[in-house]
Design a binder for these strands. Structure first.
Length: 904
RNA sequence: GGGCGAUUGGCUCAGUGGUAGAGCGCCUCGUUCACACCGAGGAGGUCACUGGUUCGAACCCAGUAUCGCCCACCA
């Protein structure tokens, strides 16, 4: 890319005063991105016509990229796939609804605002209308929570909106440069008032229908972020641990101790039972008896449960509240007591638990030991407990190191604990309720949805089939969409969670930490007889799951919503099928009783040269802007469009260079094809003028390409469509253009004859078609050429059909072009092997061609002779017998002298 | 442990029953009158492996190996 930026803002006039094409002397890709972006904006080329009906509209539920992060090559890759679809559907006659959203509701934005302004969100603070942040642009300075000024949620959201404006401007600029045909009048932010209102309204509807509910239950908890975590946000990781063999002594005597294996000895004070499989013969005698926990001396039962696996560990497990989800299952099904010892900060509780007091029958040393453990992290506590066990003689052998899998919050770096808390849930089929087969309904929606590629459906099915609980939507964070709920506070000062106070839909969005429920005054907040706001915010997916409703105007613009919903396409990555795709299906199914869209296009990963997923941490991220500027947007788009949906693709500069070469070739070949003649009649798109057999054959081949490419695009196979078009285009350039060059120039003729007219008409028809076939992938180069000789934008031109081409082609056989091309190649080969210039004349040649095409080659021999510079006799002989391929072979040849070269 | 993809020339990938394909890279040559961000020609592969079905298998079936990913596995 040159350093020169174009100064012209307007595209060149489409035609000369005489009506012929206006082709620049020098063609170039440089500067096309900026020039055409401006022209498209000015002309409103991609503006959505909201008078279109649902049948006319093609609507796309665009993924909102996370602002405060950065766009990387993977985004360019997958967003290009979507844009190719959008451009094709637009040309195919649909009114495309293609909005862009920004995801500024989530941890990345929260952290960025904290660091940038030196503040943190504290919903208990009052809103300050004249607030000025303590710092601006302090990236990384005040990262410690203690240094950050607490401000109200409303102030925090305002700062977020202020900061993300800049990110969003940059993102938009990149998308425009890439050539995304987005209607920039339709964009949204996930933290905007509108998005918050939609999220709250949808939640209230879920609540009213009984699909949202609160429950106090043990659940996965991240001790770093101190929030509950949903199943969809889990990530299993390898985690170093050790097996400890621990002896439990029977309570009623000095019989042989029961030895269990555990990786979490620090949970020994939380033990509530030992559990083995009911059929396990080793433990039959123990079922129904009790044992005492070592060190703490708490008496616990030995029980049977089928979830215990005889071949794991010692075959008998220590059930604690709570070490893992199996513990939760046992606790629930065997109705065991709750003995929680780990707090929300991941440390052991400060106060001595009641069951460890000597009064409660615990061992005499239990309280002293606890005082040593209290307030320590699980890691410290583990060491202390192991030391104590060893000293007490209840550690059987030494710990054996092992690699185990532990659940982590995908953004966290400590294993999750299980903590009991009150949370909001939305039903998603993970926990069945009588009278509704929600899981089956959602599986049916999965079958109804067209996945591209189809095999991605199994990820949906696996996930829905494997859900083990409802969707936990509340988070104990401060920045985000709050639950629109207050609770009355009783005279005892306790909130009544069973009788929530709700706003009406027209009040939304509300913030219960600053707004007041109807019938109360602000002074009553937190007082007995007053009210409190729900302190939690919604999971980011609780908002993102509503992107069709947010973008489509479900709440604020029902007329628009009716025209775009249910949408046609959800494009997205394969990694968020279980989150974004599934949660969107859930919300739409519950609210609208339909799928949110009919089709889902799943893009693959970008792999770096080591076949690893490209990621920032590996330091191999290339900035998209630099890539686009270096190679040109059409070139990068070509690389992206060359990869099929659902297939991982290599980050390959080489493929971009090929794309650039193709785009340049489009410019140059078009220039060539449009400049054979001069004046208004030089290019006439009239099928009736095409009379030559070679021209007709070429158009017949092109007609097939149009049909097949269209079919491929309808099936979301843009790769195939591109490949078909590209292959034809290179043959068109290398063979057809060479073959008809002389005839199109009208060489040697005083007047424009029918052969010349035929060639020019065929060239025009072919170019008119090829430009449109390439337009979705190469929007800039094709638009540039289109502007030389056509009115309006190629991107609003109708998608080509085969009909006019077939009309021109008649009954011509497409193979004729191939046969002529093969004949030409044979003549070239002779020269190449003789190491002479291609301009060397052939004085005489005998060309052997397959019998099946001898007549065809003879019919177009004039063009073959001209292109091969055959000045004398060209005798054709049929290959007898064998060879039925398209190949041709020169049997005899006499080469002339090369044209005199300019010496110098 | 269950599942989904992938495995084709040095590289990136097409190719779902009928004599192995493309582009890049490589080699040779040419060329500035559309295109040096160029053109022409050429070399290069027992289609991961083992069985099977078939007149015929890169393609269908069974199994194996390797790579990537998803889910489950926390005693």
């Amino acid at each position: 890319m040159s350093d020169q930026q174009p100064t012209s803002t307007a595209p060149p006039a489409a035609t000369t005063p005489t009506g012929g094409p206006r082709v620049p002397d020098k063609v170039s890709l440089d500067g096309l991105e900026d020039r055409w972006d401006r022209a498209w904006t000015q002309a409103g080329t991609y503006r959505f016509d909201r008078t279109a009906t649902r049948e006319q509209v093609y609507s796309i539920d665009t993924p909102p990229p996370t602002v405060s992060g950065s766009l990387h090559v993977g985004h360019v890759f997958s967003y290009t796939h979507t844009d190719v679809v959008a451009r094709y559907r637009r040309m195919a006659g649909r009114e495309v609804f293609y909005p862009m959203g920004w995801d500024d509701n989530g941890l990345p934005t929260e952290r960025r605002v904290q660091n940038y302004f030196g503040v943190r969100c504290d919903p208990s603070m009052p809103y300050d209308a004249g607030f000025t942040p303590p710092q601006v642009g302090g990236e990384g300075k005040s990262s410690k929570a203690g240094d950050q000024l607490p401000i109200s949620r409303r102030n925090f959201i305002e700062l977020c909106e202020r900061l993300t404006v800049e990110d969003e401007r940059e993102f938009e600029s990149l998308w425009r440069y890439l050539g995304l045909s987005v209607d920039w009048d339709h964009h949204y932010q996930t933290i905007s008032g509108e998005a918050r209102a939609v999220a709250q309204q949808a939640f209230l509807r879920n609540l009213a229908r009984g699909e949202a509910y609160q429950a106090e239950a043990p659940g996965l908890w991240d001790v770093t972020f101190q929030t509950a975590v949903a199943q969809a946000e889990l990530e299993a990781r390898d985690y170093p641990g050790a097996f400890h063999r621990v002896a439990f002594h029977p309570a009623d005597g000095d019989a042989v101790p029961v030895v269990i294996e555990t990786t979490r000895p620090e949970l020994l004070p939380a033990v509530v039972a030992l559990i083995a499989h009911p059929d396990d013969e080793r433990y039959q005698a123990l079922f129904g008896t009790t044992v005492r926990s070592p060190l703490f001396g708490v008496e616990i039962p030995v029980l049977a449960h089928p979830a215990a696996e005889p071949d794991k560990g010692a075959g008998i497990a220590m059930c604690c509240t709570f070490g893992d989800l199996t513990d939760v299952q046992w606790w629930r099904e065997l109705q065991l007591p709750t003995r929680s010892v780990i707090g929300r900060d991941g440390r052991l509780l400060r106060d001595t638990p009641a069951w460890l007091l000597a009064d409660a029958g615990a061992a005499p040393g239990a309280e002293a030991l606890w005082s040593d453990l209290a307030g320590t992290t699980t890691f410290t506590a583990r060491t202390k407990v192991v030391d104590a066990l060893r000293a007490a003689g209840d550690l059987d052998g030494e710990p054996v190191a092992t690699q185990r899998k532990a659940n982590f919050y995908e953004k966290g770096d400590k294993p999750l604990e299980i903590v009991t808390s009150r949370q909001w849930y939305i039903r998603n089929g993970g926990r069945e309720v009588p009278g509704r087969e929600l899981r089956a309904e959602l599986l049916a929606r999965g079958e109804e949805l067209s996945f591209h590629p189809d095999f991605m459906r199994v990820r949906y099915e696996n996930w829905v089939g494997g859900l083990n609980g409802d969707w936990l939507v509340s988070r104990q964070r401060f920045f985000g969409v709050p639950f629109p709920v207050w609770y009355p506070v009783g005279e005892d000062g306790e909130p009544d969670h069973d009788r929530p106070l709700l706003p009406t839909e027209d009040q939304l969005p509300i913030d219960p930490s600053s707004d007041v429920p109807a019938g109360y005054t602000a002074e009553q907040r937190g007082r007995a007889g007053g009210f409190v706001g729900d302190p939690d915010i919604m999971d980011t997916w609780a908002t993102s799951s509503l992107t069709p409703q947010i973008a489509g105007g479900w709440r604020s613009d029902p007329d628009l919503f009716e025209r775009v919903f249910p949408m046609d396409l959800r494009p997205q990555g394969q990694d968020i099928i279980r989150t974004w795709l599934f949660s969107t299906v859930v919300r739409s199914h519950l609210e609208h009783g339909s799928l949110p869209w009919s089709d889902a296009a799943i893009s693959g990963w970008i792999l770096d040269p080591d076949r690893k997923k490209m990621s920032k941490s590996k330091g191999n991220v290339v900035t998209p802007r630099g890539l686009l500027e270096e190679h040109g947007s059409d070139a990068v788009r070509y690389w992206a469009a060359s990869a099929r949906l659902g297939t991982d693709a290599a980050f390959e500069i080489g493929q971009m260079k090929i794309g650039r070469r193709l785009a340049i070739k489009v410019l140059n070949a078009s220039k060539f094809a449009l400049t054979f003649g001069e004046g208004p009649d030089s290019v006439v798109l009239d099928p009736a003028l095409v009379t030559d057999r070679l021209d007709r054959a070429m158009l017949a081949g092109l007609a097939d390409v149009v049909d097949r490419a269209t079919e491929a695009l309808d099936a979301y196979d843009h790769t195939r469509a591109l490949e078909l078009t590209e292959t034809f285009f290179w043959t068109f350039c290398d063979d057809y253009l060479e073959l008809v060059k002389d005839r199109a120039y009208g060489a040697g003729a005083a007047e424009v004859g029918p052969g010349t007219t035929s060639a020019r008409a065929a060239l025009g028809l072919a170019l008119h078609t090829l430009l449109r076939l390439f337009a979705p992938v190469l929007p800039f180069a094709t638009e540039e050429v289109w502007s030389w000789w056509q009115e309006g934008s190629v991107h609003r031109a109708p998608w080509p059909t085969a009909a006019p081409l077939r009309e021109a082609a008649g009954d011509a056989d497409p193979a004729v072009l191939g046969a002529a091309g093969a004949a030409l190649a044979a003549l070239r080969k002779v020269k190449s092997e003789a190491k002479v210039s291609m301009r060397t004349p052939i004085l005489r040649a005998v060309l052997e061609v397959p019998a099946a095409v001898t007549d065809a080659v003879a019919a177009v021999a004039g063009d073959v002779r001209a292109a091969g510079r055959v000045t004398g006799a060209l005798d054709l002989v049929s290959a007898d017998g064998g060879g039925d391929g398209a190949g041709a072979v020169v049997r005899e040849v006499e080469l002339g002298e090369a044209e005199a070269r300019v010496k110098g």
